[in-house]
Design a protein around this nucleic acid. Structure first.
Lengths: 255, 255
DNA sequence: GCGCTTAGCCGCTCA
DNA sequence: TGAGCGGTTAAGCGC
């Protein structure tokens, strides 16, 4: 049921949670509780005041006073069981694969609320991976003049390189693209692809920047680095009107 | 201020948020709003009912009906500004480095609450102290194949190493175990034990990881480092108690 | 501050 | 179902 309770008895809170879970509601609960986790790892969090969130898909979040990340959690798809035992309110969340358990033991519930959220909006995310590769696919000159893309995301025994192509001199090339600074593992990734090839190939690592150590290894292995101009690339996509809105509001400020 | 409001006017909600931010409270708000993000990437989420959480460290989370992950967020350290503009309640979160903005635009606020959570508990990850040593005692192969534990020092008073044992070649070994990354002083500790011994002993430092400088000294002194797989160790913890609790609960309890 | 490594990473895609 | 891989990864640590 949609609703809210303040300082409920633990039995009341338990009933509330169970009917909310059955009713596919989002539950938010502020209380005094401890948390145990057992699964791929294990953890123990003693008594303290925190926020518990349980969603209709079975995901569970335990948030402490600070920090972006939940201290304990369970991803979507878990089975929630709840009830009073030995004078404490117990909430158990079981994940099937991998087998994992989260146990929340309430001493006190200060506030508990459940709601049905109506939210049909589509989440639009800006120049994402795919869009980004579309651009490079359409404009290989941003990687190297005269380059022609032959394949994209082609599966190889050693993984999946972003592109294969042919350069202006007719050499076959393998291209690994990073949207942010390339590190040592980017080079390793490229190297894996290269090693699994027979015949002459050029290797190109393409990113806005590269760490010193990565560049060192790259050079030693005889591969090339191509600096990617993200700004120039973005200018190829349509301007996002909401950036304007945000800027305007930031200028005018709030308080 | 600690408190809660139902269906407040946007102005009231704005004031509430501002004083809560100043008072270092955790804010939870359920409402009808849209979200824009601009920074390393950009995103747009149209109008819908969601949960907003703002923590005292400036972290911001926007949660939709489903999913473990927040649809939008801002990590700790952001500056929160809030106020009414053009009949909407705006909440802006600004991150300095990298420069990122999150804008929440409320059409309606259904519920808003702020609390000061008292939570001093320490978060223990991995097997708890005793369990941890029990596990290693029972599974010395996690330290080294063929190792046999001879003695164990449970409590911490120094002067006595965590374990002594005999390796597969019949060498006596002194083992210093750390539950977290080993540092220079871990090596020093092992070294003290070693120096207090007469006769031939091998020294093993056993930890999930080790700092470079510590490894350097360790090698120079001729001791060995053994990487501890905490994850694998955790999985050795008996699942029985949990499953029992869960089963018992399912049979007798809640719903 | 930057660069590197890890994470109960999560979640997506595709063989 | 598993492997590979991106992410507004975040967060921690060494340098």
């Amino acid at each position: 049921m949609n609703g809210i309770m303040f300082y409920p008895l633990l039995e009341e809170a338990g009933d509330f949670i169970n009917s909310s879970v059955r009713g596919k509601k989002l539950i938010i609960c502020i209380g005094l509780f401890s948390v145990e986790y057992l699964g791929r790892s294990s953890s123990n969090l003693g008594l303290g005041e925190r926020v518990l969130m349980v969603k209709e898909d079975g995901s569970v979040l335990v948030h402490r006073r600070v920090g972006y990340e939940p201290v304990n959690w369970q991803p979507a798809g878990c089975i929630i069981r709840c009830g009073v035992r030995d004078g404490k309110l117990l909430l158990l969340s079981e994940r099937r694969r991998p087998k994992e358990f989260l146990k929340v033991v309430f001493d006190k519930v200060y506030l508990i609320t459940s709601t049905s959220l109506v939210d049909e909006a589509r989440f639009e995310i800006g120049p994402v991976e795919n869009e980004f590769y579309d651009l490079l696919m359409a404009h290989p000159e941003y990687i190297e003049e005269g380059l022609r893309i032959v394949s994209r995301q082609k599966s190889m025994p050693s993984g999946i390189p972003d592109f294969t192509g042919k350069d202006s001199k007719g050499n076959y090339v393998i291209i690994e693209v990073k949207r942010s600074m390339a590190g040592v593992d980017s080079v390793k990734q490229l190297d894996r692809y290269m090693k699994s090839q027979r015949g002459h190939f050029r290797g190109i690592l393409c990113a806005p920047s590269i760490t010193k150590s990565a560049l060192l290894i790259l050079k030693k292995k005889g591969y090339d680095f191509r600096r990617l101009n993200l700004k120039a690339l973005s200018s190829l996509v349509a301007f996002k009107p909401y950036e304007e809105t945000l800027d305007r509001h930031l200028e005018e400020g709030g308080s």
